[in-house]
Structure formats: C-alpha cells, structure tokens
Simulated scan of single mutants.
Amino acid sequence: MAGYAAMVRLFDARRVRAALLAARVTAPTPDDHETDPVFVDLLDTPFETVDDAHDRLRALERRLRAAGDRRAVFPTIYTRMTHAVRAAIDDGRFADPEWMRRYTVTFADYYRRAFLTFERGAYAAVPAPWRVAFDVAVAGDALVAQDAFLGINAHINYDLALTLRDLGIDPRRARKRADHDRIDDVLAGLVDAQQAALVDLYAPGLSAVDATFGRFDEAFSLFSMTEGRAWAWRTAAVLTDVRAAPARAVTRWLHRAAATGGARVIGSPPIDPAVLAALRRVERDRLSLDGALDALTDHLDAASGT
C-alpha cells in the first residue's frame, strides 16, 4: 500500500497541468541541421567513469561553443555540476561514494544518448523533453535562460527518475536517499557561478535582467531543481515498489508527460513576443534595460491604440 500512497503523491496539481500540456507539444524536424561526425565520435560510447563523463562533456561544450551552437548552454551548466559532484565524492561527502559514482555516470549517460540520437537525425527516438530542448537550441532564437532551463527540465524532470530506477534505490534506501539529497547542497553552491558563466559566455546582459526582475531564471523554471530531484526520487520509488502493470503505466505516462509539458512552458512561455524580443536584445547586451522598457511601453501603447 505504501507504493500506491507514494503514487498518489506524484499527482500534484502543477505536474498534472504540465502533463496535460504535453499533448500540445509539436516537434518539427530541423531542416538545416547536419550531423557532425566529431560529436558522434565523441559520444558514441557510454561514459565509463565520472572523469570520463566530465572530460567528454567539457569537450562537447567547447566544440558547440566554437560552432556557435546554442546546445552548448546546457553542457556549460552540466559540466560544472559534474565537476562539483566529483569533488564532493572525492571529499567524502557521501555515505556511499561508489553508488554516487555510478549515479553520476548513469545520469550523464542519459544526456549522452539523447544528444547522440538527435545528432544522428533519429528525431522520433529522442525523448520528448530533450527533443523540445534541442529543437529550441538549434533554432538559436530563444533566451539563454530558456536554453538553460530546457536542458535542466529534461535532465532532472525526465532523466533522473530513470537513472534512479536503473541504479536501484535498494538496499539501504534511506542511506541512498540521503546521498541523493546531499547533491542539493552541492548544486545550491553553484547557482551564482553558473549564472556568471552564462553571462560571460552567452548573455552579457543577463545579469541586468536578473537584477531587475529578481531571480529571472525562476520565470523559466517550472519546478526548482530541488523539487524536481525530490519528485524524481518519488517516481523511482513508485516504479520500484508498485508491481501492477496499469499503475506503472500511469506513473510512466505522468513522468514523461509532465517533463514534456514543462518543456513546452519553458520553450513557449505565455509572454508577449515583443517582450521576449526585447529581453533577447537586453540579454545579448544590444539594448539597455531602460531602452527595452521604453520599447515595450511603445509596443503596448500601439497595441492599445493610445
């Protein structure tokens, strides 16, 4: 019965709303995206160790940035996350360091497979949350914040539960859960550094937007990383404890659909296109924030006929 009670807790209002949005997600095939054999060679084999995952993610990020490919935004964040988790493992911050090494490698491998599948052009086989993230990044006209949170959404709200299911959360579930939760503290210490990296590498005006609107990144994060990670654990627990096929099928549907609906919200937020256009110019340091506000005021006046 505990497994079914945990399953009921998965159906919070926000997840259900996001899941219902998933049916409205469209996945256009990129017309001008060509497979890069260097990416294929780099990601063709599974990650073997934490060091291997970190080094190949860093190489991927550097090549994407050199090519001006906005898919670089997520690995910029993710490489730093992987580095920080590796340091925490080496520092003895986890009760089960070997499980955490396998956790880190298995988690990274979900991203590797999604990227590789997309790069090879097998678009229908790419998990839907990643498909939205990659499509938006390849188009290159979203906010950097959107690219960042589309990747975070797909990796945490989709990949993480599957990672935990694959690894197994038993035996010593409580100890493994405590180690899983300790990563929240590691990630919390990276927020400012990651935002600084995005400012330096992609969006010089992002800090101005963030300072004005107050944690601008939250506007594009349907669920916080901490909440998403907790929900991933609950999902993995249900998939572990509940054996009835219909219940497992419903859990898998909610897991996939909520992450896909979340991608839709992040990728196509309910914001006036003129507002997004102005924010893109601010983010890229091509327009001051005051100038953007003036432009938006003019737009709203024109729209209202005043």
Rank of each mutant, 00 (worst) to 15 (best):
R131E: 04
Y123D: 00
V85F: 13
A95W: 12
A88S: 14
D90M: 06
A145T: 13
V138W: 06
N153V: 05
L60F: 09
D69K: 00
W130E: 09
Y103S: 08
A145E: 07
R80A: 15
R56G: 08
G140C: 07
D55S: 14
T117P: 04
A142W: 04
V136C: 04
D96C: 06
L116M: 10
A87I: 10
P46F: 09
A122E: 14
R131H: 14
V105K: 02
Y123N: 00
A88W: 04
A87V: 13
R113K: 13
V132S: 08
D41E: 15
Y110V: 03
P97M: 08
A148H: 11
R71P: 01
Y78E: 04
Q146C: 03
M81R: 15
L60N: 05
M100T: 08
W99T: 05
A133H: 09
D141V: 05
H83K: 13
R131G: 01
R101S: 10
A67H: 13
D69C: 03
D44L: 04
V144H: 05
F134T: 01
D52E: 11
R56L: 10
H54A: 14
P127N: 09
R102Y: 06
V138K: 01
A133K: 00
H155Q: 13
A124I: 05
P46Q: 10
T117K: 08
R63Q: 15
Y78Q: 05
A137L: 10
I89L: 07
Y158C: 01
A88Y: 05
R131K: 02
L60W: 11
T45P: 00
A154V: 07
R56Q: 11
A128W: 12
G92W: 08
T45Y: 05
D55P: 01
D90V: 09
R112N: 10
A128V: 10
M81E: 15
A114E: 07
R70M: 14
G140A: 05
F149A: 00
A87C: 11
D41L: 07
Y111M: 04
M81K: 14
V105H: 05
R70S: 10
A148I: 08
A66N: 09
G68V: 04
A154W: 06
N153S: 08
D44P: 01
D109I: 04
A148C: 08
Y111S: 01
G68N: 00
Y111N: 07
L43P: 04
E98S: 10
A124Y: 07
Y158S: 06
D109L: 02
A87T: 15
R62E: 15
D51Y: 13
R63D: 12
